[in-house]
Design a protein around this nucleic acid. Structure first.
Length: 758
DNA sequence: TCCAGCCACTTTTTT
DNA sequence: AGTGGCTGGA
């Protein structure tokens, strides 16, 4: 307890950090020093001699978090982080499967399919079996397969009561066979295969259970069913599972995360100590109180209230714009002002760097307007999200050549580059090859010998080229190998002659650099090195070190890299709310706070969806340290159409005393239009339209709203005749659901829509 | 076989 | 509006 490691911790943090060897759940609110507690606990356990480095298993969701944890640990203690298992779920599964590839039934050179690869594998499968892709869209199939695996289900475990599901399960089965034949695993398979291996192999399981005395999990609220089961497999009778999470920040239910794992954990492991970290070190109280008040509207919570010792700080500013461009311009002006004040040395009002300003939005489509405004104002910015380095087409092409050299069974990679750059191998030749491969039961690569004629010659040339590349590079370094492949594959040449290919050539050159720094910084083969205690040598060959190329390919699949846009320059940060999780900024702008957008219309149908949206808003608010701005717009261009938005309900759920409305509150579009407002708009009012499509809210109730009643026939200037289905809200928020004879059912805001009773 | 133009799609995302 | 995938003509 008196360790200097824990001296600067508050009592709750110190208690969590120094818990005895037992299972524990730490409810760590936003900005409460969660990562600090996690790393300090590991350091403390090691320092007190409770466990050796080899006995630690620490799991995170992102590579960034894993890296951060390792970095902080090395700064706390002189410790060999390589001896600990610290990494992402998938990274650790990879390490595990590489060590026991034989037991797992995988080739040593197994390749990892990312989401794109998985989709193309599914498409190939569907084509082969003549699946109607209208009825079974490959994307959905791919999603279905991943969802089954995330649920821990093999095809035989999936309950199929209708013919469509039975078909999907059948395809899932075929997909599995295809992957197995080709020696590839997708992301979910990494998890499921490791889980099953542990479950079914008693000797292996007890070995690992004895080994890992302390298992620590970050962001526990984001674990899915399989990940929780996986953790349970590793946790033996003498292991302690230390889970850190925040149910209020669970925003990934849509991809299978189960907040319920927190309650299950408490029950399954008879957790004695649940410690709440409620002291927030990040935000001023106006911001924190807003977050607390907002999240209190959620019913299903474990319950937690953040407090701060910092003062009230600036009020949260709310701005209503007339249009999305005006909104963006206002944000940019305000951001510049903050930066200017920071430059003048005013650290309470301004921000020292542009990178301390974040502009958040609910969906990616909203970034464009903000980018335009920033660009026009000459403000440097950086957009997160979008394609990352290893996901770019040219990089994936290059990697496909490399993967094929490493594992000729990989048909996905074969298909990607067999005719890229174009070398006269068309659909017919490919079909011939696929038929031959299928009837001989071999890979496309080895089926080339069965093909004769022109197709045979062309494809034969391609295969020969791969063989030659493999031989030529056998004694070359990794970066030299890649350089040679880029030249001899014709990829560089192809992009050099392409009009818009300069960026792609640059990226390919960057790939060579990435390989160089991978070897020097990361070392290679690290993932597959021997277990320290040397167990299981009889069963598997943990001592066989991966080739640098194999390690690099794994790295590329598991860590897609940054999107490398303007790194280095001090720039305003643009990202979705999801992407902002785990980050913090001096100033945060949350934009597009309109019904249907945030909360998003697709999430409003059920209460759970709405609660997740609210948690999303909670995450967004708690990113801010000093200044928080909330903006919404009366009109917005979305998918090429003007939409009229209603102010988000979340704005109403914030404590009034923390807010300052820059524009008068409760001004609907109508009243603004009639009474030119006190503030000066950035642009002229948009041409008036009489449509407003608002999302339905949860419970329609009112029977008579603004002279309308259910069942009335109405006329609308654009949609024509219709019947009122339901009514809700009052005053400026009043809405009517109307079934138009020619345009279907729509929700209209009565303050905007021009309706006549007929 | 290749390229151009047309059509459908559009919440959030890590590995 | 913008993009990615697919079809049909050269």
């Amino acid at each position: 307890m008196s360790s200097p490691l824990t001296q600067s911790l508050n009592p709750e943090q110190a208690r969590a950090t120094t818990l005895p060897n037992e299972h524990a759940l730490i409810l760590a609110g936003a900005g409460s020093g969660k990562t600090r507690v996690l790393t300090t606990r590991i350091a403390w356990l090691l320092q007190q001699g409770h466990v050796g480095a080899g006995g630690i298993l620490a799991v995170t969701f992102t590579n960034k978090a894993a890296k951060e944890m390792k970095l902080r640990l090395t700064s706390m203690l002189p410790v060999n982080v390589g001896a600990m298992w610290i990494g992402t779920f998938h990274g650790l599964c990879n390490r595990f499967l590489r060590a026991h590839y034989k037991l797992a039934g995988l080739p040593q050179t197994f390749q990892i399919l990312d989401t794109q690869d998985q989709l193309s594998a599914v498409k190939r499968l569907c084509k082969q079996f003549n699946i109607d892709d209208e009825q079974y869209p490959p994307k959905q199939l791919s999603w279905f397969i991943s969802a089954c695996k995330d649920d821990g289900k093999r095809p035989k475990d999936v309950e199929a009561n209708d013919s469509a599901t039975r078909k999907k399960v059948e395809l899932y089965q075929l997909y599995e066979e295809q992957c197995q034949r080709e020696g590839v695993v997708d992301f979910a398979e990494l998890m499921l295969r490791s889980y099953e291996l542990l479950r079914d192999n008693d000797e292996l399981r007890s070995h690992y259970q004895r080994r890992f005395q302390h298992i620590l999990v970050d962001e526990f609220q984001d674990t899915n069913k399989l990940q929780y089961a996986w953790l349970k497999m590793f946790a033996g009778a003498s292991s302690s599972l230390f889970a850190v999470g925040d149910d209020d920040q669970s925003i990934y239910a849509f991809r299978g995360a189960r907040v319920g794992n927190m309650a299950d954990f408490v029950r399954d492991f008879s957790v004695q100590h649940q410690i709440k970290l409620e002291q927030n070190y990040r935000s001023y109280s106006n911001i924190l109180d807003s977050a607390n008040e907002l999240i209190s509207h959620n019913q299903r919570r474990l319950g937690k209230n953040l407090r701060t010792d910092q003062g009230a700080g600036e009020p949260v500013r709310v701005f209503e714009a007339t249009g999305d461009l005006a909104e963006a311009k206002w944000v940019v002006d305000e951001a510049r002002q903050l930066y200017r004040e920071g430059q003048n040395g005013d650290s309470t009002r301004g921000v020292p760097r542009r990178s301390e300003i974040a502009v958040l939005y609910r969906s990616n489509a909203q970034s464009r307007v903000i980018e335009t405004a920033l660009f026009n104002a000459g403000v440097p910015y950086r957009v997160y999200g979008g394609l990352r380095f290893f996901e770019r087409a040219e990089i994936k092409h290059a990697l496909a050549y490399l993967r094929l050299m490493e594992n000729p069974l990989d048909d996905t990679s074969f298909m990607r580059v067999v005719n890229f750059p174009p070398r006269g191998i068309g659909a017919r030749s490919i079909e011939q090859l696929q038929d031959a491969a299928r009837s001989a039961g071999v890979s496309l690569y080895s089926a080339v010998h069965h093909i004769t004629g022109k197709a045979g010659t062309n494809i034969g040339g391609f295969v020969a080229k791969i063989d030659v590349l493999r031989e030529q590079t056998v004694s070359l370094s990794l970066s030299e190998t890649i350089k040679l492949v880029l030249e001899h594959s014709g990829l560089l040449e192809h992009y050099r002659t392409e009009r818009e290919g300069a960026d792609r050539v640059e990226n390919l050159e960057e790939l060579v650099n990435a390989a160089e720094s991978f070897v020097t910084i990361e070392g290679f083969g690290k993932e597959a090195q021997a277990l320290p205690d040397g167990a299981f040598q009889q069963a598997d060959s943990e001592d066989e070190v991966m080739s640098p190329l194999a390690a690099f390919l794994t790295h590329a699949a598991l860590e897609a890299g940054d999107n490398m846009a303007d790194a280095g320059q001090d720039a305003v940060q643009l990202m979705t709310v999801h992407a902002s999780k785990g980050l913090e900024f001096d100033a945060v702008f949350i934009t597009g706070l309109e019904e249907g957008l945030f909360p998003h219309e697709n999430s409003q149908s059920d209460a759970d969806g709405l609660e997740e949206e609210r948690r999303l808003m909670y995450v967004a608010i708690t990113r801010a340290r000093k200044r928080l701005y909330l903006t919404h717009s009366q009109t917005r261009l979305l998918h090429g159409q003007t939409r009229y938005g209603i102010k988000s309900r979340f704005l109403e759920e914030l404590p009034e005393e923390c807010l300052r409305w820059i524009t008068p509150k409760n001004q609907g579009f109508q009243s603004n239009f009639n009474t030119p407002s006190a503030y000066k708009p950035y642009e002229d009012w948009p041409a008036r339209k009489s449509i407003s499509e608002a999302a339905p809210s949860l419970a329609p109730k009112a029977s008579d709203v603004q002279g309308l009643q259910k069942g009335m026939k109405v006329f609308h200037t654009k949609f024509g005749e219709g019947a009122v289905l339901s009514l809700e809200g009052a005053g400026l928020d009043a809405r009517a659901q109307i079934n138009f004879s020619r345009h279907g059912t729509k929700w209209l805001a009565l303050s905007v829509a021009k309706l006549t009773v007929i």
